[in-house]
Design a protein around this nucleic acid. Structure first.
Lengths: 135, 135
DNA sequence: CAGAATCCCGGAAGATACTG
DNA sequence: CAGTATCTTCCGGGATTCTG
């Protein structure tokens, strides 16, 4: 895991930077519009394509396909095809996918705890930008 | 926020959905290319504009401006202008900004712990898609 | 130094239609 | 049902230029 050559002269700084880059990678992966939502829905158990589509709501087939393919590629979900007459495909979280729950929920808790402050700050900021009625 | 007609028959399900939406909001906020990196650099203390630009590396003035403005709007950083001859502007994390560290580091740790599995899964998947030389 | 303004391109993502 | 293919629109974001 740890790069052998990258001796951290300044542990705090270099490690931080590396760390951030990694977070960046994960964020690039799950930070899109639908991935987290999909993973969190899947945590309740396997789902079929259109089931997911309905439950997520507002997602196009195209995006659901892409989202699922991305998650599958990264080993977060498995795709199981049943060769039945009406085709059936189940998507299910892998252990790795499940393991993502914890950090994501951490973020969710943070969001839940501070969303009010954020929205308040946001309103105050917007107020400052357009103090009066600005059409 | 909550549609009045959509009575949540299954509390667990609806709550999950709401929760996910919230995570989605946060992700939309910090899930961009630069926000997390900026916040994590700022955690070491206040920084000036070009200082940040240098330390982040690869970011354009435009994007740094936008990123900082967004973070400021949400109350995650403060912007302090010094009316000196060479203008000087310091950006600093608010307590709210600092509080974001924990969940973000949680995600970072997850990334760090599983990046190898992910890349492995990714390679395996890509292999499956183009088993031989596919021009 | 710290931005604001403008131009521009590529990719993200929606809508729709077709298929096994 | 579960996609794939195509077309089009939108906007994130880089490069560059101008200003207080």
């Amino acid at each position: 895991m740890i790069p052998s050559k990258n001796a951290p002269a300044d542990p705090g700084l270099d490690h931080l930077h590396t760390d951030c880059r990694r977070v960046g990678e994960v964020l690039a992966r799950i930070g899109d519009k639908w991935s987290v939502l999909t993973v969190m829905l899947l945590r309740k158990g396997p789902r079929r394509f259109n089931e997911l589509k309905r439950e997520i709501g507002g997602i196009s087939q195209r995006m659901l396909t892409f989202t699922l393919r991305g998650l599958e590629r990264d080993g977060l979900v498995t795709r199981t095809v049943f060769a039945t007459v009406p085709p059936r495909v189940d998507y299910e979280l892998t252990p790795l996918g499940h393991s993502l729950r914890e950090p994501v929920e951490g973020l969710g808790n943070w969001a839940f705890a501070h969303i009010a402050s954020i929205e308040s700050a946001r309103r105050a900021f917007d107020e400052r930008q357009s103090p009066k009625g600005e059409t």
